[in-house]
Amino acid sequence: MSAPVGKTPEQWEGAGVRLRAFVRADETDLVAAFADAAITTWNPGPPEGPTAFVAERNDWSTGTHASWAVAAPAPGGEPGRLLGSVSLHKIDLTQGDAEIGYWVAPWARGRGVGAAAAAAAAAYGFARLGLHRVHLFHAVENHASCAVATRAGFLLEGTLRQSFRYPDGHRHDEHLHARLVTDPLSR
């Protein structure tokens, strides 16, 4: 039996990353992250601004998403600097599946943060929510996201033709990747 999603973020540790609630101190970094073309090309920015983004991501009360700020583990209970974001969304406890999305701040790229965060969020979904499958979509042109998915153990399952309209207004082909609870932790 699966556990329901709580009302607020549950902290979760992964390999070199901490998934935690967004804090007010993250708002400056959120503004910088959503000014970065590598993020905004594939992710719409928060239309209401960082304060609303933080409130929405920290409100798990609908049970349809589990969203976290990604940070490095910090001593003494400090939150640590924002390195990115990861979310399980479209959570369906009846079917035992969810979609995952992520982005990595420019100052944290090239260190495996995205793959560690995606693997940690999937592990949370399997362990705490009883999920069987976690999947993701990314534009075929988004090579960085493809590399993150692959390093996090999400197998490429196929290509969906013109499946999603991105912020550029065009429909892009997307790759579908997935991990099952039965998949090995690393490849």
Rank of each mutant, 00 (worst) to 15 (best):
G6D: 09
K7E: 13
E10M: 11
Q11A: 15
Q11D: 10
G14M: 07
R18A: 02
L19F: 03
A21H: 04
A25R: 11
A25Y: 00
T28L: 12
D36L: 05
T41S: 11
P44D: 09
G45H: 03
P47V: 07
E48R: 14
G49Q: 02
G49W: 03
A52W: 02
E56Y: 05
N58K: 08
D59N: 05
D59E: 01
W60N: 04
G63M: 05
T64F: 08
T64M: 10
H65A: 12
S67V: 02
A69I: 01
G80V: 08
L82H: 15
I91W: 10
I91R: 14
Q95I: 08
D97P: 00
A98V: 09
W103M: 08
P106Y: 09
P106H: 14
W107Y: 02
R109C: 06
G112W: 01
V113A: 01
G114F: 08
A116H: 11
A117Y: 03
L129H: 00
H135W: 15
H135P: 06
L136V: 06
F137T: 15
H138T: 13
N142S: 05
E157P: 03
G158I: 07
R161T: 12
Q162F: 06
R165K: 09
H172S: 02
E174T: 03
A178L: 04
L180E: 00
